[in-house]
Structure formats: C-alpha cells, structure tokens
C-alpha cells in the first residue's frame, strides 16, 4: 500500500508550544510504501502533570510494538515504571511531588494498516485500539464509514477514563480498552483526532455539514486557512473547545 500521512497540531490557546501535551506518530509528513504501518495520537490530561511525557511514551509504545500492545501486561508496567524514573530524577516542590504521586493520565488511539497480499479476502485490513476520547474516522469519498471509539458529539465530556502512569489507577483498564477492525480500499482516508477536534468533527457531521472536506484540504491550495489560524477561528466562534489539538491525516493512495 502507498500511504501519505501528515500531522497537524496546535497548543491550547494562551499556552506555548512547549506546554502542548498531545503526542503523535509519525512526527513529520511521511510518504511511504509498506505492508504494515502504525500510527498513533495521544492526549495528556491538563489536570495532571508530566502528562505530555506520558502521552509520548504511549505513542512510542504502540508504534514500536510488533503485535498487540496490551495495557495490562509486563510491557505496560515497565512503561509506567519508566515514567516514574523520568519524572523522579530531581527534587520537586511539595505540589509537584504530589502530582507525581497521583500520576499522569492520557487518552491513546492507535491504528495499524495491513496490506497482506498473501491473505485472502481481508488482506487490506486495519486494526485500532483506544482508551479515552481521541477518535478516528474512516472516510471513503464523501462517506464517514467508521467513527471510533466515540460516535457522537454528545459522548465527549471533560471526565473521560484515561490511561494512567500510576498502577493504582489502571486496575480496571481492560474494561475501558476499545478495539475495532475493518478493511480499506485505495482512496480511503483516516483522520486521527484528539478530543476537541473530534467533537467538532462529529457535531459538524451531525448538523449536515462536511467537516472532512476541511481536513482533507488542509495544507493544499484549497485550504480555508492554515491549520492554526483555522483552529483559532473556531475557538473564537465557540465552535471548538480550547484544548491542545492534533490531527493525523492518513491518505491511502
């Protein structure tokens, strides 16, 4: 399969790029031909500390894994320990120490595209895994084929279950892991989005508009505005919640 992937990102309005706490892979625009490709976005929770580091760790964990990357096995526990080691390197003020004790939290969404020519029938298939409210949509021309894991704008809240770096908060994680699979065709597109953008997308579609065209046209001669300017306009209009925003656009060509 031949894939063209491009990330877009913007920090929360009023915050700096350094304060951005989403994460994504690939980090840069990528055009490649392969039989298996992995993608991910993650969204560190505002109210927890070092959640940007945790989001990056989760993205790396999903994209470097060769098979399924469960969130309750030894590999995941090592990831949690690694976070503690990274953030515990230097003495912290009392409040930062307390935040470390609570742990970091993030939503994660991973997608794997397969082009397995030896397999009959569903050789061109995909698998996705999610915890939290980062979402993907699969587009075929003007049709939204799949919305995952959330399917409507009303499902977004400010209190999602998120993956924690603290094992005390991941005891029932298996109840919250969502899996999905499907097949793809040449010409399909996948949009991986963190919650503020995903919520906007769902609402626009529910109201009969065509949000996929806006995302499809970003960074082309047809774009309405450059990504950050466009996000800023939506925030000012109250059409998008002020939050870190990430889009990973994947076109199978």
């Amino acid at each position: 399969m031949h894939v063209f992937a491009q990330p877009f990102w913007a920090p929360k309005g009023g915050s700096t790029d350094r304060e951005y706490e989403d994460a994504f892979w690939p980090r840069k625009r990528m055009e490649t031909t392969a039989t298996c490709l992995r993608f991910a976005v993650a969204d560190g929770a505002t109210e927890t500390s070092y959640s940007g580091i945790w989001a990056k760790q989760l993205v790396r964990y999903l994209c470097r894994s060769s098979g399924n990357a469960p969130f309750d096995g030894d590999g995941f526990r090592r990831l949690q320990q690694r976070w503690s080691t990274i953030v515990g390197r230097r003495p912290l003020p009392w409040y930062a120490e307390e935040k470390v004790r609570l742990g970091a939290f993030a939503a994660i969404l991973g997608l794997v595209l397969y082009d397995d020519v030896d397999r009959e029938g569903s050789g061109r298939h995909w698998q996705a895994v999610a915890v939290g409210d980062s979402c993907l949509v699969q587009m075929r021309e003007e049709e939204v084929l799949v919305r995952f894991p959330l399917a409507e704008s009303a499902a977004f809240t400010n209190r999602p279950y998120l993956l924690s770096s603290n094992p005390a908060h991941t005891g029932r994680v298996v109840d919250h892991v969502r899996n999905m699979d499907g097949t793809w065709q040449t010409g399909d597109a996948f949009y991986l989005m963190t919650d503020a953008l995903a919520c906007w997308f769902m609402r626009e579609a529910e109201e009969g508009r065509t949000p996929w065209r806006v995302l499809r046209d970003l960074d082309t001669s047809d774009e309405i505005k450059p990504f950050r300017e466009w996000v800023e306009t939506l925030r000012k209009e109250g059409a998008m919640r002020n939050d870190d925003v990430t889009l990973l656009r994947i076109d199978i060509t």
Binding site: E47, T48, N158
Partner: peptide, 10 residues
C-alpha cells in the same frame, strides 16, 4: 472546578 480534562479514574 473545571480547568481542563480531569480523568474520571483520578
């Protein structure tokens, strides 16, 4: 108080 995403499992 709402200052942004707060995990339900925190």
């Amino acid at each position: 108080l709402d200052i942004g995403t707060r995990p339900s499992n925190l």
